[in-house]
């Protein structure tokens, strides 16, 4: 079942197009990554899904509800962590969440239990009585996620969740996101930190100038953009370039003094090894999953060329 669905979703600010003709489907329980450079329409899309910005045309469905007509029902089930999330610095972590629980209309006892649960889960229970103004960026981000969980959401929308975190905090945060997935929460996250997205996302959508340029798993994108979903590094005797290139499924071979970089549409390690052994010697063989960084860089290079 599609948890988030958009058809021809378009947003224009005057003559500037923020999002154009977006068709997107996010399935239940998956982690979907929205990628793209700054200003490519990621945040606008998210705001339209929450009913916080009115689309110029097209429609969106979140959990089968129209965010423009029933924003309260949508927002009751969808947690949102904005980029650069802010809290009331003069209030403590606990008080900030208490305010949210009141806005959610939770009864007193239930609210207290839930606040304790989410603060413990995010490792913030010990600092619950500290003012948020004294919190580090990582703690704020975790408090933001605690607030998202306070809702017991079916969908969590996270906008640039790891931006500005140090590597350790970012890694921890990604673990927390994986935890959401394990719980069955559908996660939509936007980011331009590609290796992190690659680590947690089942599928990604690449935004470019308000349009969804590419959509699929990382392997599918690599297939489409790089011409091969698998990158195999071979160390073998010289002069094997042509022989490798003749194998079925090989998209490209780059050779450099006995080291070969083969892009292929499937895992060709055994075939490559056989060819190498037949014609000489094989010193090393390694499969590398294509990185999203490469896909991204390659795609935008192509786009720039085409323009």
């Amino acid at each position: 079942m599609a948890v988030i669905e958009t058809r021809g979703l378009t947003k224009r600010y005057g003559r500037v197009v923020a999002v154009e003709g977006l068709n997107l489907e996010v399935h239940e329980g998956e982690v979907f990554g929205l990628l793209g450079p700054n200003g490519s329409g990621k945040t606008t899309t998210i705001l339209m899904l929450l009913g916080l910005t009115e689309p110029t045309s097209g429609e969106a469905r979140v959990l089968g509800l129209d965010p423009m007509r029933e924003p309260l029902k949508v927002k009751a089930k969808v947690g949102y962590l904005p980029d650069q999330v802010g809290f009331y610095g003069e209030l403590t972590a606990w008080e900030n969440l208490r305010y949210t629980s009141r806005l959610l209309g939770l009864p007193e006892a239930e609210a207290k239990a839930r606040i304790e649960e989410v603060l413990r889960r995010m490792g913030l229970w010990e600092v619950r009585d500290r003012k948020v103004s004294a919190f580090s960026r990582g703690m704020r981000q975790r408090l933001g996620l605690a607030e998202v969980l306070l809702k017991r959401p079916k969908v969590a929308i996270l906008d640039e969740p790891t931006l500005g975190l140090d590597p350790e905090a970012a890694r921890e945060f990604l673990e927390l996101i994986k935890g959401l997935k394990a719980e069955g929460i559908t996660v939509l996250l936007s980011s331009h930190l590609l290796h992190q997205v690659q680590e947690v996302c089942d599928r990604v959508g690449l935004f470019h100038k308000g349009r969804l340029a590419l959509l699929g798993t990382v392997e599918e994108l690599a297939q489409k953009v790089l011409g091969g979903g698998y990158e195999i590094l071979v160390e073998a005797g010289p002069g094997l370039e042509a022989a490798f290139g003749e194998l079925e499924g090989v998209a490209r071979v780059e050779a450099e003094a006995g080291r070969y970089r083969v892009l292929a549409s499937r895992d060709l390690r055994s075939e490559l090894a056989r060819v190498a052994v037949e014609r000489g010697a094989l010193f090393g063989l390694a499969l590398r999953r294509p990185s999203l960084d490469e896909v991204y860089a390659h795609y935008f290079k192509e786009v720039a060329h085409a323009a």
């Binding site: 929450l50 916080l52 924003p71 309260l72 009751a76 949102y80 904005p82 806005l103 209309g105 607030e147």
Partner: peptide
């Protein structure tokens, strides 16, 4: 300025 507006408005209120 505090970055709280979008967070508050994403709660089920108008």
């Amino acid at each position: 300025a505090r970055g709280t507006l979008s967070r508050i408005l994403s709660q089920p209120i108008y």
